[in-house]
Amino acid sequence: MISRRSIVQARADVRREDLGGESALMDAAGSVYGIDGVGAAVWAEIAAPAVVGRVIRNIADAYGVEQRTAEPGVLAFLAQMGRFGLLDIILD
């Protein structure tokens, strides 16, 4: 369960291509995923190990919204990326 206190990082073997503001990801098994603009911004935040609370703050700042507005979306996105095996959960 990913929370604000978790530390996560994009897996090093996931490839990324730009889709004009959105992003495409391909995992080591060859599965391809398209992520929208916000997802691409979150993905950029976790290129290095990142505390999820900080990711939420940065995304909220970037989009000019309250952290509590950004939080559910960011947590759901990271949980889904985790289920797809696209990120490492360094600290639960």
């Binding site: 889709l19 503001g21 959105e22 992003s23 391809v32 995923y33 398209g34 929208d36 997802g39």
Partner: peptide, 21 residues
């Protein structure tokens, strides 16, 4: 359709991707 959704449509439309890979 925006590019990230175009991508999934195009991946589904790929003909025998295993041969291309």
């Amino acid at each position: 359709v925006n590019p990230s959704l175009r991508l999934s449509t195009l991946v589904s439309a790929t003909y025998h991707r295993e041969i291309g890979d």
